[in-house]
Design a protein around this nucleic acid. Sequence first.
DNA 1: TCTTTTTGCTACTGAAAACGTAGCAACAGG
DNA 2: CCTGTTGCTACGTTTTCAGTAGCAAAAAGA
Lengths: 111, 111
Amino acid sequence: MAKMTIPKPGKPVRGSKSGKPIMALIDLMGRRWILRILWELRGDALTFRGLQEACGGLSPSVLNARLAELREAALIETTADGYALTPMGRELGTEFEALTHWAEKWAKGLK
Amino acid sequence: MAKMTIPKPGKPVRGSKSGKPIMALIDLMGRRWILRILWELRGDALTFRGLQEACGGLSPSVLNARLAELREAALIETTADGYALTPMGRELGTEFEALTHWAEKWAKGLK
DNA sequence: TCTTTTTGCTACTGAAAACGTAGCAACAGG
DNA sequence: CCTGTTGCTACGTTTTCAGTAGCAAAAAGA
């Protein structure tokens, strides 16, 4: 499996050469499992296998790749208890959690 | 190319069978180009080809698939001027734009 | 009216990413 | 030791994405 480059602000990413931070974020968030992982780590730290289970049993190879990307992006870190959000990652997670509200409204509107 | 099911709140989606709206959102946002399309439509409406160009020339087949998903999710609609965000889509777009701030901080923190 | 463009989209082939399973080395109890 | 857990790699299959070509319908000239 060819290695996907890790999106970083200031550098060209998939779909944009501008180097704008938002484009790096779009690239990162547009990858499968990234959001889910942040979501599952919103509470306590989780081990590799715990995270895998929480995500419904995604393949370890993909999980490992995503973890590397998130680590490189300084959004998660490994602690004694397993994987956990960094302060920056927690901030992003919190911002994203705000979308739960919106999602509820969205669900109602679709019915 | 096997058709990917369209994520909707209340139904099982890729990675989760709970039917929770947030999981449908995670599935949707985790697909490549979805966020970018919402981003590019934050201003005026764009035609199919205009959107394609704005996204750096993504393939029309993928664009069309993503547009179908976004339409089904009631986040975009076709108007006389082309594709545009629905009120609900605009709301999501606005929430996402708030992340621009965060992304700037993130970029600084990584340097 | 008769070309040209433009637009929205489909078809097809190849490349890349994700899935699913198996398994191994390191460590932790017991 | 023996057993179980943990983090992770390998690898073949399936799914998704990319890239190009092109067509029917509508619009725009001439």
